[in-house]
């Protein structure tokens, strides 16, 4: 190896260490038997996980997150898949403008969405409700579904749809029986992206949801704002495990797609 390669490897390893170390360094604190946020640990225990499990807001916050994330993934996944299929099928007037609207939630700062939805959802009774939060998170996750499904459709040969229709299949049947099975890994990956977007979202949840819809990230944000307890580290561990599962799911889905 040349000296410049060695230097590159050292730099790259340090960069990966910088990415991985902060989270890996603090997660073991959640197994502490004491209540300090530094090392060495006075002993090991699961008391902070017991606290997470028994408290009246942490476990419900986890369920709320899973509920909202699933709802948002279903809404974004179904609408996003249909839209991606339509975008892929044919050119139509104003397509680039439509595309800009569909992808806009990716670039508009979350705080603007949060305040705008607080104002718009208030009179409709959608603030402090699961429906409102699911709709908002579905809007934020939909672009990821559109992009992922469009990528999956690039691998799909449109001739198969013509073959299906010449064999007598209706367009719906051709889509469901021929196209969907082949792009399903992409659809599922898009839905996982939408779920992950919802699971990570703080600003909108902070502004439009009430105490009954507290999600896990929102609960962590309020905890970090007042005083940091080690229960937050236990919650962080739960979120990290969930994210790792989602990453694993997406990686497996990517491998299954052609």
């Amino acid at each position: 190896m040349t000296p410049s390669r060695i230097l590159l490897w050292c730099f790259g390893t340090l960069a990966i260490l910088f990415l991985m170390a902060p989270v890996l360094a603090v997660l073991p604190l959640s197994f502490s038997s004491g209540s300090f946020l530094f090392y060495p640990l006075p002993g090991l225990s699961l008391r902070w996980y017991a606290d997470f499990w028994n408290s009246e807001f942490w476990l419900p916050a986890l369920w709320n997150s899973l509920k909202v994330g699933t709802g948002a993934a279903l809404v974004a996944g179904s609408l996003g898949t249909l839209a991606a299929f339509g975008l892929w099928r044919a050119e139509f007037p104003g397509k680039s403008l439509v595309m800009a609207v569909l992808l806009a939630p990716m670039v508009v700062p979350a705080i603007i969405v949060a305040v705008a939805l607080l104002l718009a959802f208030g009179p409709l009774g959608l603030t402090n409700s699961f429906t409102g939060l699911i709709l908002a998170h579905a809007a934020l996750g939909a672009p990821f579904v559109v992009v992922t499904v469009l990528a999956a459709l690039q691998q799909f040969d449109a001739v198969q749809l013509r073959a299906a229709s010449s064999c007598g299949a209706s367009p719906l049947r051709a889509f469901l029986r021929v196209c969907l099975p082949q792009i399903l890994p992409g659809v599922a990956a898009g839905a996982v992206f939408a779920f992950a977007t919802s699971l990570d979202e703080v600003a909108v949840a902070l502004f439009i949801s009430g105490p009954a819809q507290r999600t896990l990230p929102r609960q962590m944000f309020s905890g970090l704002n007042d005083s940091i307890s080690l229960t937050i580290m236990a919650a962080a561990m739960v979120l990290v495990l969930l994210s790792a599962l989602l990453l694993l799911a997406v990686t497996l889905l990517r491998r299954r797609s052609p």
Partner: peptide, 14 residues
């Protein structure tokens, strides 16, 4: 893939 709030919390604790 790790949540933004977790990474922010990690820096706070560090």
């Amino acid at each position: 893939w790790t949540s933004l709030i977790v990474r922010t919390a990690a820096w706070m604790v560090l």
